[in-house]
Design a binder for these strands. Structure first.
Lengths: 330, 330
DNA sequence: TTGTAGGCGTTATCAA
DNA sequence: TTGATAACGCCTACAA
């Protein structure tokens, strides 16, 4: 250790740098100052590689599932990750991401960073392959809005309940004929369960309420304008859109077609992220508590790492309806 | 080492796993197979922490300047980084990013990951603080389209020449009155030199050619539609837009205002990224050779790391005009 | 209050 | 062809 060059043992330096007060107070101020000065002069930074080797832990968490190529548009993920990262920082962990090296066998595995980390935070779309890879690593992990494997923990949103709440509200407002605008953003990713699940939940709920199920199954590949006019043709009084992106695009299309929201048709979206409240009209949405989920995921992960008991393997969150002005009473 | 549990020394295991053929061929096939089998059974993975400590290098490169919060829209960066990452992977390096922990003193420093890496790739907007931090780390780095400090290497684009080429072309096509649409995407980042530099280069070139300088300085805060009608009012025959984002927004606004491109006014953008060729009409752009820059940056960084001589500290790239159908002859 | 020594998992060197 | 050993930089008992 370089700082020993000021005439003191490396053990003392280590103690000073880490403010180690384990046995009494230790360290003469005079020595302390001399060390700090030398450290500053030499711009010395302890080698975390060695520290990690010694401690058998890195205090680094990797976020898996971020897409550096296509930057998934979902703001929900961003909000959740941001919250999780804040918590992790507070608890003394660093957070990293890896640009995954494409797997030699062309599978969707190979996302794990080669360097050593203490835990994983899973977001976005996880394929079976990638989940298996994570499981096999033996490293603790928590998924945020993601399916997880046997050993995995997760924070998930109760989408079924969310759909129920939306429909409760829409029915309360007198709506019967409700169209569903499916998600198209993840069209390219066949493993995206979120899109399929939400749609399935919608169909199930509509049926169980004996509401009319409009022809909207093919809406995943319909143009926005076509979807709107088709919905009106089917006398829909409200549209439920898969996510904010879809809502915004539909509202833009409506504007161009001179369809007024909510006068001509009501609109409900998902995810209460940034522009939702700024739209014209302000959009009523089912809000996913992204930041809470992120925070909770971070806490769960750290609990796991520090050997604390984690009561629920899957922590469920409720969506909250945020009523603004895009739904009219019929 | 666990795999020693199959009755052989750790040195041998190490040799087998790394395919070490340094002294003759070594290793009896029988022993080799036994080791490989045990490794597979125990799902053993060498500890990179220890390897890094021993080798005094990590084979990890960190990308600095990516914004996990606001997702900078620039596709140029993405393309460059993607290319750089590919090269680095091929050369045996891993690539990571850090979610920076906000600096305690609130400065823009604190972007460096705490874990040990061999080199940095700088992208996006680098403030003086962050550059100083990188310099002080003593770790080799290469900037991609970024200013760098004393010890830094970089791949940069010759923007002045690019502006000259555009104006050459526009003049050749008979244009005299050329409006400049400034960048607004980075408005929030006062340290963004790219926006200011390109604008300054444009003004300088227009003056040196004795072309009329239209009133467009305030365009950074003008609505797209206003900018268009104002340009027409000033009898501009062509618009040069800061980047693809601006071009696309202007073209959308033009469509809504029933202004036809290039009949009513010509348009040139910057950055030949994905949608440029798909627009109506296909957009003529100054193409920044993002992928070449990324590749070159990666090569330079690895050369630095491996002690090879790097001839140019700043490697300049030329922009290429890609003529499509958004410019008409006047 | 400070120093000594051992070990974390690897790999390179040298010896067998 | 294989094994023993030292060293990378750090932390922590334990000894002084």
């Amino acid at each position: 250790m370089i700082a020993k060059a000021c005439g003191v043992s490396n053990a003392t330096v280590s103690r000073v740098l880490r403010g180690d007060h384990s046995n009494g107070f230790s360290v003469r101020p005079q020595v302390r100052d001399r060390i700090m000065q030398t450290v500053a002069e030499l711009n010395y930074r302890p080698d975390l590689t060695a520290r990690s080797l010694r401690a058998q832990q890195t205090h680094v968490i990797a976020v898996l599932g971020l897409n550096h190529q296509w930057k998934s548009a979902s703001d929900v993920n961003n909000a959740a990750i941001g919250a999780a990262v804040d918590v992790l920082h507070e608890l003394g962990y660093s957070v990293c991401t890896s640009f995954p090296k494409p797997a030699a066998d062309g599978s969707s595995a190979g996302q794990l960073p080669p360097w050593r980390v203490d835990g994983y935070l899973l977001v976005g779309i996880q394929t079976k392959d990638s989940l298996m890879e994570v499981e096999a690593s033996g490293i603790p992990y928590v998924g945020i809005n993601t399916r997880v494997g046997q050993k995995g923990y997760a924070c998930q949103v109760d989408d079924d309940l969310g759909i129920q709440k939306v429909l409760d509200y829409l029915q309360e407002m007198g709506h019967q004929r409700i169209a569903y605008r499916n998600g198209s953003a993840d069209r390219a990713r066949p493993d995206s369960h979120a899109v399929l699940d939400r749609h399935a939940a919608f169909v199930r709920e509509i049926r169980s309420r004996d509401l009319p199920l409009l022809d909207h199954h093919e809406s995943m590949v319909m143009e926005d304008a076509d979807f709107l006019s088709d919905s009106l043709r089917q006398k829909a009084t409200a549209i439920l859109a898969y996510d904010l992106t879809e809502s915004i695009r539909l509202m833009q299309a409506a504007y161009q077609l001179d369809i007024q929201i909510p006068k001509d048709i009501s609109m409900v979206g998902f995810n209460d992220e940034y522009p939702a409240a700024m739209l014209t009209p302000p959009l009523t949405v089912m809000g996913v508590p992204a930041r809470s989920m992120g925070r909770q995921a971070a806490v769960m992960l750290v609990d796991l790492l520090q050997g604390r008991e984690v009561s629920e393997r899957i922590h469920m969150f409720d969506e909250q309806l945020i009523t603004r002005q895009s739904v009219a009473r019929v």
